[in-house]
């Protein structure tokens, strides 16, 4: 019944969005390539983070907003997507202290904690 109704919203200029997405793609390919041979670690990390990941978020936002029509969709859907992403952040925050913990990698009992005594206990 609402087939016509929800198509009433004006379609954005998809071609323009598409071109912007392509430009961003080029940026994200060549950004990390450009700094590949630079020694300074800080510059490399900043450039890669921005060109690879910030751009990825911008691209994702553009696709979600205009191609998936989240901009004109009922707010409840937007809210739903946000909750799912938030839960993933909670997961990341709760788990990373354990997975990122390097203590115990290639574990050797160097301090002889709980070492097996050479002679059986009486």
């Amino acid at each position: 019944m609402s087939d016509h109704e929800d198509h009433e919203h004006a379609h954005p200029d998809y071609k323009k969005i598409y071109y912007v997405l392509l430009v961003l793609l080029v940026v994200s390919i060549f950004g990390p390539e450009l700094v590949k041979n630079i020694e300074n670690r800080i510059i490399v990390v900043t450039v890669v983070l921005i060109t690879a990941f910030v751009v990825a978020f911008i691209k994702a936002g553009m696709v979600a907003a205009w191609f998936m029509h989240l901009d004109v969709e009922n707010k409840i859907v937007w809210f739903l997507m946000a909750i799912c992403l938030l839960c993933m952040l909670v997961f990341l925050a709760g788990v990373s202290p354990d997975v990122l913990n390097t203590e115990g990698d290639n574990w050797q009992n160097s301090r002889k904690v709980g070492a097996i005594p050479s002679k059986p206990l009486e």
């Binding site: 839960c87 909670v90 709760g94 202290p97 354990d98 913990n101 115990g104």
Partner: peptide, 22 residues
């Protein structure tokens, strides 16, 4: 319910600081 899960792992070797939170 989404921020309590690690209480099942208190003795599994998880980070002690997180144990307090959980």
């Amino acid at each position: 319910s989404f921020v309590v899960w690690a209480h099942h792992q208190f003795i599994a070797g998880v980070d002690p600081r997180m144990v307090h939170l959980f």
